[in-house]
């Protein structure tokens, strides 16, 4: 009897399959300004010194990390994130695909928008497909004498 129950339990677990992984979105809000006082990059922005050699980062020389958030993303479920300028970033995971061998690569298709209640959307629609761990940026929002860069990175679980 005990053996039968054990077998049933194992069969039940096997049929359930692996738990569905939920990707995590990392959002970093970076404030960039141009200062005559010299360049300064927040120590938390480890990769940014490399990026600042190129447009549009080269327009600024002071970078400060204002906020950081990790957000689990489920397919088809929009997640909203309030920005420091009063706008809201909304991100939806559309789907996840995996490219085939010899270089399998998990690709995240996401849809984003930046809006503000009662005003015309700053960014009505952005659709991006990015590899795991591959950051991309949304820039251009003016904020306190500079601009905001939103860095978005998706990670698997």
């Amino acid at each position: 009897m005990a053996f039968a129950l054990a077998c049933a339990s194992v069969a039940s677990l096997a049929s359930a399959g692996p738990a569905k992984s939920v990707p995590t979105l990392e959002i970093r809000v970076i404030h960039a300004t141009q200062s005559d006082g010299g360049a300064a990059i927040d120590a938390d922005l480890r990769d940014l010194p490399q990026l600042t050699r190129d447009q549009p980062f080269v327009r600024y020389n002071v970078y400060k990390l204002l906020a950081r958030k990790l957000q689990a993303l489920e397919e088809g479920k929009p997640e909203a994130y309030g920005l420091v300028n009063g706008r809201t970033l909304q991100v939806t995971l559309v789907d996840v695909t995996t490219t085939s061998a010899p270089h399998p690569d998990r690709r995240y298709h996401i849809r984003a928008a930046i809006g503000e209640p009662g005003k015309q959307a700053f960014l009505k629609l952005l659709e991006v497909t990015a590899s795991e761990g591959q950051p991309f940026f949304v820039g251009g929002q003016t904020y306190e004498g500079g601009t905001l860069f939103l860095e978005l990175v998706l990670y698997g679980t």
Binding site: L123, L126, A130, S131
Partner: peptide, 12 residues
Amino acid sequence: GGVEVNAVEAPS
């Protein structure tokens, strides 16, 4: 690979 921008829409 990398990042692929599929669509951008920003009114005005």
